[in-house]
Design a binder for these strands. Sequence first.
DNA 1: TATGTCAGGTTATCAGACAAGTCTTGCGCA
DNA 2: TGCGCAAGACTTGTCTGATAACCTGACATA
Lengths: 235, 235
Amino acid sequence: MTEFARVPQLSTRIATHLQTRIEAETWPPGTRLPTEAQMMQEFGVSRAVIREAIAQLRNAGLVETRQGAGAFVAAPGARPIRLEPAQTMDRRAFAKLYELRTPLEVEAAGLAAQNARKPDLARLAQAMARFDVPEESIEASVAADLEFHHAIALATQNPYFVQVLAAISDRIAHVIRAARAEMTLADLHARTRSEHGAICAAITARDPQAARAAMRAHMAGGAARIGLRQKQGPT
Amino acid sequence: MTEFARVPQLSTRIATHLQTRIEAETWPPGTRLPTEAQMMQEFGVSRAVIREAIAQLRNAGLVETRQGAGAFVAAPGARPIRLEPAQTMDRRAFAKLYELRTPLEVEAAGLAAQNARKPDLARLAQAMARFDVPEESIEASVAADLEFHHAIALATQNPYFVQVLAAISDRIAHVIRAARAEMTLADLHARTRSEHGAICAAITARDPQAARAAMRAHMAGGAARIGLRQKQGPT
DNA sequence: TATGTCAGGTTATCAGACAAGTCTTGCGCA
DNA sequence: TGCGCAAGACTTGTCTGATAACCTGACATA
């Protein structure tokens, strides 16, 4: 009968405790966890708490439950890849995130040039067209930017790029929006349009090398615009 | 009364329903969700189900709950990046995952060459040393491989690379382990040792360009060894 | 051996209650 | 009038007990 302090939620503490047993392979995949009743006794809490702890693990993909059968340790391949959010999104953490984003966007541009299909190119052109109108608001501009990069990710034909880039871009856009940039909206709009145009042209021409180079320039430009230095040479 | 179609759990259905409202910005960040009592009435279920649904959203990082106050839609920046597991980890999905891993490992090698500190280089050398002994088992070999790549990720000084590469490598290693490879263990050991050595040397020499090239060769070699074709040229 | 049935165990859901924390409101006081 | 503060309403966290849906394994039977 272990006694838990009440600082974090009871269920969370129990969940992390169980998680260590699973990740330490004390309970290898396929193992059946103790029943809820047994855990109630072991941890000295009510069934509601146990159920919530199990729910957390199930949500994290570490266990699977079957009504009437029990809870089982899931196979590693079934677990989702998960990146914990940075505690504070300060300038340093932001730069690190951008550092992660850059090679992914560059590679996505190259893959898009190789693998894009007709509908992908159409979607890309459509995203480009949104820049033809004069700049309206920071919101509209950011949304158009996101849509363009999303179209590239889709063109890779690789769902992993779509997912991870969507998550990263979304967070970066959020910070940009909050920071408000130091340049005029008109200038930002023009530069983005120009750089996006180069990328779009290279992808449409199915030139992976040019697409990568254009995207790399775009990333470096974006980093510079928001005050980040990238000390990265040619790859 | 027999049910033919098995429906997902009640809590899951309600959770996804709430999720659509959040992602459609019907409830923008900061909004307070209806109270548990209100939802009980709206959906006609017990409080336990509502609480499980909320718990799912909380685990997904979409809402935050505060005792006595309520449940609130979380800021996008606070949400963890999450990659859903592929339904089936077949050869195609595996290739896509490798496609994502390659640019990340290449960039990590380059950043490691730029940013590695003394302890990082020591850890790298230690990981290399594990290959000096003759091959033992497939398990030991895979573990040493993972440790080497983990050491590189740490040397980037970028926690995002550490997290995402750890998650991806772990899953790839799992598949490799299951597939058992087509080459002899001795041959695999020798090749891995040779390629890792080149990477390690480039990083220790603080030569980012050479580190990137060596890692790219290593990735291509690994892909070829497990039967994947990479149609990727120089970046 | 093969098969159908049943009993026991397990999770899913329901219902009601109290504890702990938060927010609002109104009252007393300066 | 304006401010401080405490009481009370409200909300989530935890506990308790019960029923329904479901799974597994043993057992009887042909």
